[in-house]
Amino acid sequence: MSRIAYFGPQGTFTEQAARGLASAADELVAVETIPQALAAVREGRTDAACVPVENSVEGPVTATLDGLNQDEPLVAVAEALLPVHFSILTRPGGGEIRTVASHPHALAQVRLWLDEHLPNARQVASSSTAAAAVGVDAGDFDAAVTAPVAAEHYPLKILATGVADVHDARTRFLLVRKPGILPRPTGSDRTSIVASTPNRTGTLAELLTELAFRGINLTKLDARPTRNNFGEYHFFIDFEGHIAEPRIGDALAALRRRCRNVRFLGSHPRADGVAATIEPSEGNDDFVQAADWVAAVRKGELA
């Protein structure tokens, strides 16, 4: 049995994702913030943490990116991809809705619905969608934009459900642990790193070229300030493949040579099951055969 911290309180999309990533014997532990979920793993209070990393509408979850790049390393061992449709919860018998609360990402994803159905309600940011539901239950707000699972935890009325301005919106979540044995490669994997480079012309292009030379397909690129010097950034890079593959290992070694620092954030199966795109002459067998040829030449076995 494992203990898994998740970005709570109860009733968030992250709880829903954690349920899908956990086994029946695992214990889910709600914490108030993403940094607290990551700290629970680093401090040994839980075995893993489930945190959101990106949304197809609002982009990266910066608290997760920054948290993974700070303090002791953690690595992602699994991911979940959830469709994001919201419920609007109010108190039973409540009157006029003057305030509606939720996490800023959630409010942004239902802005058009709110403008049409609750045009006079003031929008209030909360630390999570579930925290907004807690606030409605306590009488602090009149309505909350929440994950559907929140209705299971709080004695609130469902005003509307299936709400989303973009109906195919999705959020990706990571299950992170302390470094250890990685999941085996499946052929449909994702590798994540954060690279720090000197602030000079062409450094990002050099990083991406190392991937392109090896036929490795990029799936995500985000930049976050280093907080040391204005204009310097950490680059968070996701790409197809697994570190156990020769072509991926070769690329990571090249990036490690070029960068001031590289932090490995994990290799794990993709939630969508999409297989890696491999161009001709860029497969793992090609890299193995090329390395074997070099080894043979060094031994004097080939002219």
Rank of each mutant, 00 (worst) to 15 (best):
A5I: 01
Y6P: 07
G8Y: 11
P9D: 15
P9K: 10
Q10T: 12
Q10N: 15
Q10M: 11
G11F: 15
T12L: 12
T12N: 15
T14A: 15
E15D: 13
Q16S: 09
A17S: 11
A17C: 10
A18I: 10
R19A: 04
R19Y: 02
G20E: 08
L21Q: 07
S23W: 04
A24T: 11
A25L: 12
A25Q: 13
D26E: 09
D26Q: 05
E27V: 01
L28F: 06
L28P: 05
V29G: 03
V31E: 06
V31Q: 05
V31F: 05
E32S: 14
T33C: 02
T33S: 10
I34D: 02
P35E: 08
P35W: 04
Q36D: 09
A37V: 01
L38C: 01
L38M: 03
A40L: 00
E43F: 03
G44W: 00
G44M: 01
G44P: 00
R45A: 10
R45M: 03
T46N: 03
D47K: 00
A48V: 05
A48I: 04
A49R: 00
C50S: 03
P52H: 02
P52V: 00
V53A: 07
V53H: 06
E54S: 12
N55I: 01
N55F: 03
S56M: 07
S56Q: 07
V57K: 09
E58D: 14
P60C: 12
V61S: 06
T62D: 15
A63Q: 10
A63G: 13
T64C: 06
D66C: 11
G67C: 06
G67H: 05
L68S: 08
L68F: 05
L68H: 08
Q70D: 15
Q70T: 15
D71M: 08
L74Q: 08
V75F: 09
A76I: 10
A76K: 09
A78L: 05
A80T: 07
L82W: 09
L82D: 12
L82Q: 09
H85V: 14
H85F: 06
S87N: 13
S87C: 14
I88Y: 14
I88A: 15
R91N: 10
G94P: 01
G95T: 10
I97W: 06
R98Q: 12
T99N: 13
T99F: 12
S102V: 09
H103D: 15
H103F: 11
